[in-house]
Amino acid sequence: MKPDPGAGLARYRWAVASRVAAAAFGGYALASATAACLAVWLPMARVDAVVTAMLLAFAVYAIGVTWVFATRNAWRAWGGMLGPAALLAALCWAGRSAGLA
């Protein structure tokens, strides 16, 4: 599975760098969005919802990073991180507007 020297190697390195970025930053976005959304929506006392949300968010981050390197290519990796992150962030915003938190 060696890449061709030259253009192939550069491409491979970009792909890896892209995945690393997706994992680190995309993953963090997903984790933050998860924490924010759950903190607003969990039907518990405010402080309880926040700590539960953060505990789950760490698990999501770790699993997300692992998934980024298991999935087929870097584009899917980014999509898988940012897509749900955007959705969760929207849900969080909707919840706050509705006065849930």
Binding site: S32, L38, A39, V50, A57, R96, A101
Partner: peptide, 16 residues
């Protein structure tokens, strides 16, 4: 988890 407030402030600012 010990540093969760520092690491994931989004969870706090969403609710507080």
């Amino acid at each position: 988890v010990i540093f969760m407030a520092m690491l994931l402030p989004a969870g706090i600012s969403a609710a507080y």
